[in-house]
């Protein structure tokens, strides 16, 4: 679904841009191919790591360590699992709901989902190559801080066990 939208949008934009300025459009297409090829080493690494992380961190494994009674340690583990795993967010929320059903605590699931979306070990190398190491590290630490705040507020307002 997403891919149809993206490809359609890119083709429409390509046609529009071509009609407006042939020379610039040619340059943009060439540059896109160059950047795609430039990203290949990082992408191949990222794709392999996605498979490894998800096979090792299966939903059963995750729900095993972040049960209702797992407390602060469980929250820590769920954040680590979320940071290391790589899942599209439209899978993250159903997975979070499943984890809840399997007995995981709300605070732990909140930590897992938030870390999953915001902290990216797997994409760190790519983030570094775009923004530099300092930015990448601070941005990820910022996401960690935001995750901790989220877990804390969810626990206060919605119960759940710290």
């Amino acid at each position: 679904m997403e891919s149809i939208i993206f490809y359609t949008a890119s083709v429409l934009l390509l046609v529009y841009s071509f009609l407006k300025d042939k020379q610039k459009t040619k340059k943009a297409v060439k540059k896109s191919i160059k950047s795609l090829l430039g990203l290949l080493p990082q992408m191949s690494f990222i794709l392999l790591l996605i498979g490894l992380s998800l096979a090792v961190l299966s939903p059963e494994t995750i729900s095993g360590v972040i049960g209702e009674e797992s407390g602060v340690l469980g929250i820590g583990l769920s954040i680590v699992a979320g940071a290391v795993a790589f899942l599209p967010s439209f899978i993250a929320f159903p997975l979070g709901a499943t984890l809840l059903e399997q007995g995981a605590g709300l605070a732990q699931v909140a930590g897992f989902i938030s870390a999953l979306m915001g902290i990216g070990f797997i994409t760190l190398s790519m983030e570094q190559s775009y923004f530099g190491t300092k930015f990448a590290v601070y941005r990820n630490l910022g996401s960690l801080a935001m995750t901790l705040l989220f877990v804390f507020v969810v626990t206060i307002f919605m119960g759940g066990s710290l």
Binding site: S3, S10, L13, S32, I50, G51, L52, A55
Partner: peptide, 28 residues
């Protein structure tokens, strides 16, 4: 794990190339 990696290749191919093209066209 290999199965998951291979299916992620599909996700990447469905998003990254058009996004790069859109970004570079918008740049122009």
């Amino acid at each position: 794990a290999m199965g998951i990696s291979l299916s992620s290749v599909g996700t990447m191919l469905s998003i990254l190339p058009p996004i790069l093209l859109i970004v570079n066209l918008l740049d122009a």
